[in-house]
């Protein structure tokens, strides 16, 4: 389950001030907003955008991990990975459903994804090169996602919050699954340990980027915080992630690829080195190693599935007609 700091939503609204103030009072009173409630257009648009991005991330996220299902090194690992990737599909489904309560269809959202108009978490534009990448994704990517998602369980929009509660419940095994893989590798042969360290080196920085741009560079963070769609800023969540991951890496004897990483007694947090934002934006805009392949794979599944979906609808029509004919005949 993977959310990323929101990229590029427009949050400005045109409703009059009394309406916006009344809405804000409901939010401030921690009231949940439900599908048919009056809401500012900007709130609706931001949610559709964010939930859609979140759902797309789940669906695209099935691809890099799915890449290793047939090559999983043991039957136990294979079953766990298959169940995990399936869960991501389920989480995408819950999220699309939550977005659908706002008046947008899954088909519309899918078409936006395929047209390159909707974003998804850019971490999935990196390739899974070895089995250790499956461990690293579970541990780091799911770990980062959990940081993002737990506060979303208290999001002001009811259907999104409820979807996140279900997701977080199911997700609890994902990070453990990944960490267990990494731990096994780190305690294994020298070659296995090398696999683990290599995967950690490649996934660490993209994982930190998952939280989105720095608060100072994030255009939409403030409004989302006021509307309680978001509860913590990108930087707060990123810091929380670093603080909890460093000891986990130490425990299994792996080194995080950041020479500037050190405990800051005064702040009570780890300091870490600068993130390469040029790389982040390059990957977001389509220049990552796998952007093209990921969208092509989704496009292919969508196109090749068209005749199946059409057949299901055609058959449903026939069933209905036959049922009605039988009813008429009986009357």
């Amino acid at each position: 389950m993977y959310s990323q700091g929101l990229i590029g939503a427009k949050t400005e609204t045109t409703e009059d001030e009394a309406f916006l103030a009344a809405f804000q009072r409901r939010i401030d009173a921690e009231e949940k907003i439900e599908p048919n409630d009056p809401m500012p257009e900007g709130y609706r648009r931001t949610l559709i955008r964010q939930i859609g991005q979140h759902a797309h991330s789940e669906i695209v996220g099935m691809l890099p991990e799915g890449n290793w299902i047939t090559r999983a090194p043991s039957l136990r690992r294979k079953a766990a990975l298959l169940a995990k990737v399936q869960d991501e599909g389920g989480h995408g489904l819950y999220l699309y459903s939550a977005a659908e309560t706002l008046g947008v269809s899954r088909e519309q959202m899918t078409e936006e994804l395929l047209a390159g108009k909707a974003k998804y978490s850019s971490i999935f534009n990196y390739p899974t090169l070895t089995w250790a990448d499956i461990g690293a994704i579970g541990w780091l990517v799911d770990g980062a996602a959990i940081m993002n998602q737990i506060p979303l369980c208290r999001c002001s929009y009811g259907p999104y919050a409820r979807a996140m509660i279900r997701v977080c419940k199911e997700e609890s095994f994902h990070q453990r699954q990944g960490y267990e893989i990494m731990m096994t590798l780190a305690n294994g042969t020298p070659e296995q340990k090398e696999l683990a360290q290599d995967a950690l080196n490649r996934w660490w920085w993209p994982s930190l980027m998952m939280f989105g741009p720095h608060d100072s560079d994030s255009q939409h963070g403030d409004q989302s915080m006021r509307w309680k769609i978001k509860r913590f800023t990108n930087d707060e969540l990123r810091q929380q992630f670093v603080d909890s991951t460093v000891p986990q890496a130490e425990f299994i004897g792996l080194t995080l690829p950041d020479p500037e990483l050190k405990w800051n007694e005064e702040r009570g947090h780890y300091d870490f080195g600068p993130i390469d934002w040029d790389e982040f934006w390059r990957v977001v805009k389509g220049g990552g190693p796998m952007n093209k392949e990921r969208l092509e794979a989704r496009q292919k599944a969508w196109d090749e599935g068209a005749w199946v979906r059409e057949a299901a609808l055609a058959h449903a029509e026939k069933r209905k007609a036959r049922r009605e004919a039988a009813k008429m005949a009986a009357e």
């Binding site: 799915g66 299902i69 039957l75 298959l82 794979a297």
Partner: peptide, 29 residues
């Protein structure tokens, strides 16, 4: 069957096929 995971004609089927594949793998084990 697990080769389909992530490539099904509709999302609901992306959950259904792994369910069947997991049954098969469980039986194999």
């Amino acid at each position: 069957l697990s080769e389909w995971c992530g490539h099904a004609p509709m999302l609901e089927e992306d959950l259904a096929m792994p369910n069947i594949a997991l049954d098969l793998i469980g039986q194999a084990r």
